[in-house]
Amino acid sequence: MLDAHEFTDSLDAELRSFLTGVDVDLYGKWAQTRGLPATPRVGRHIEFTRTGRRITRRTDGVAALHRDPAAEHVSDMLTRLDEEVERAQRTLPRIRLDEGDLLVLDNYRCWHGRDAHTGARTVHIQTVRTDDA
């Protein structure tokens, strides 16, 4: 797990500006796979809800928008972001969940993943909304 707000705030100004100011296709590399439609999911890595709550996203499926004249720059910035994330991942703590354990994360703030494993994997997602959401 990684506090994505803290992490992205620590990046250099050019990369932060890219994350907050440039639209990308958040799932473009995955179009028509994993059940995702080919329709672009246009957004920015860092956005805010209507009530001002920050959302910091990251996906390995992100791509430049189709026919974006700045596509080369976008690709370069995505590569830089990947390199920074890889550097951070090396030092992240790992959490082992055993049967009956529950992990609660703020998906607007926390980037998370999992290591490869064998055996059954069951995930139940519960959405909790507050007045601020």
Rank of each mutant, 00 (worst) to 15 (best):
R94C: 00
F7N: 08
A31H: 15
I46P: 09
D25R: 05
L2P: 04
T51I: 12
R129N: 05
R109Q: 06
G119M: 07
H5K: 13
L65P: 03
A133C: 14
R129V: 06
I55N: 07
R96A: 01
H66C: 07
D101M: 09
T33H: 03
G52C: 08
P93F: 00
G52Y: 14
Q126L: 14
L105D: 09
G28A: 09
L2E: 02
A64D: 00
W111C: 01
T56L: 04
L2W: 03
Y27M: 05
V123R: 07
V22H: 10
E99Y: 13
M1L: 12
L19S: 07
E99V: 10
A63C: 13
P40E: 00
M77Q: 14
H73I: 01
E83H: 01
D25K: 07
L15D: 06
E99P: 14
D12Q: 15
V104A: 05
T20I: 03
T8W: 00
E83M: 06
A133I: 11
H73K: 15
R67V: 06
R121S: 01
G21D: 15
T33E: 00
T79V: 09
R87S: 10
C110F: 00
S17E: 15
T127N: 14
L11I: 04
H45N: 14
A38M: 13
D3G: 10
D131F: 15
I95T: 00
Q89F: 02
M77C: 08
R53T: 10
R121Y: 01
F18W: 01
R44H: 11
A116Y: 00
L92D: 03
L92F: 01
Y108I: 11
R54S: 02
R67G: 04
A70F: 07
D115R: 02
T122W: 10
V62T: 02
W30Q: 02
N107S: 15
N107V: 08
T56D: 03
E72V: 10
D101K: 08
I95P: 03
R87T: 08
S75E: 13
P69S: 09
D82G: 04
G119S: 11
L65Q: 01
